[in-house]
Write a protein that binds this DNA or RNA. Structure first.
Length: 229
DNA sequence: CACCAGGCAAGTA
DNA sequence: TACTTGCATGGT
């Protein structure tokens, strides 16, 4: 694999290929339904997926994983059910607000696909408890819109290899990926999941480690920063 | 024991 | 705009 990249799209695709070759297909959130995926996106905020998935399972056990059931549930009861996800009081409220919004503006998913992605994203961001990453996760994984999700792993992996600043803004990174890659949902889905997987295993601490599959993608040496450091 | 995990909102300067 | 803090469980 050549490390001389003539363009940003080429560099981004090379990184994808390396990660895919190393970690393989990730299969994030396949066929679980809009509600389960959106609830998962909220429950996993600043929490590992293991704890979040337990909370989901708890809701499933009592057949409460529907917008209407969550709206009907007492907030304290909901909080106790999702305890394993941490921040359970906050997250119970977030789920309540989200499901309320879903009913008021979209008749519980029924009207949501008629809206354009930009408008939907703005709406999601206006809901209390939904920030950029959660909004984009819902758009990409639940609604299958071609929206690239940025998270702390993405920023860290890239900055460890001097491909961006460790403080690079969310919107800048998102634009970078979306303007330099084909806008395909399946690619964005796999790419983000691979970055998370890579981030879990490598480059947690400075500097980047030699074992990382992206070792060699060094923007400093090659002058191929994706954005100003 | 310390540290971290698929963030966000609200407050401060 | 750019930082800081509260929120909280469970794994390593």
């Amino acid at each position: 694999m050549s490390l001389q990249h003539s363009s940003t799209p080429e560099l981004l695709m090379d990184i994808f290929s390396i990660l895919f070759g190393h970690f393989g297909h990730q299969g994030w959130w396949p066929g679980q339904g809009e509600t389960e995926i959106s609830v998962g996106a909220i429950l996993t905020q600043n929490t590992n997926w293991n704890n979040a998935s337990r909370a989901i399972q708890e809701l499933k056990n009592y057949c409460l994983l529907t917008p209407q059931k969550i709206r009907e549930l007492d907030e304290e009861k909901l909080a106790s059910l999702i305890q394993s996800a941490g921040y359970y009081n906050q997250k119970a409220r977030k789920l309540k607000y989200f499901m309320q919004w879903l009913k008021e503006y979209h008749d519980d998913w029924r009207l949501i696909r008629k809206e354009n992605t930009i408008g939907l994203r703005r709406e999601l961001l206006s809901v209390w408890g939904i920030g950029k990453e959660t909004a984009d996760s819902i758009l990409l994984y639940a609604l299958e819109k071609p929206v690239f999700v940025i998270d702390t792993y993405t920023r860290r992996i890239l900055s460890r290899h001097y491909l961006c600043s460790p403080k690079e803004k969310y919107d800048n990174l998102q634009t970078l990926f979306m303007e330099n890659l084909p806008q395909e949902t399946s690619l964005y889905n796999e790419y983000h999941a691979l970055l998370v997987q890579a981030g879990k295993h490598y480059c947690r601490k400075k500097p980047a480690c030699e074992k990382c599959p992206l070792w060699g993608f060094n923007g400093k040496n090659q002058g191929s920063q994706l954005s100003p450091p």
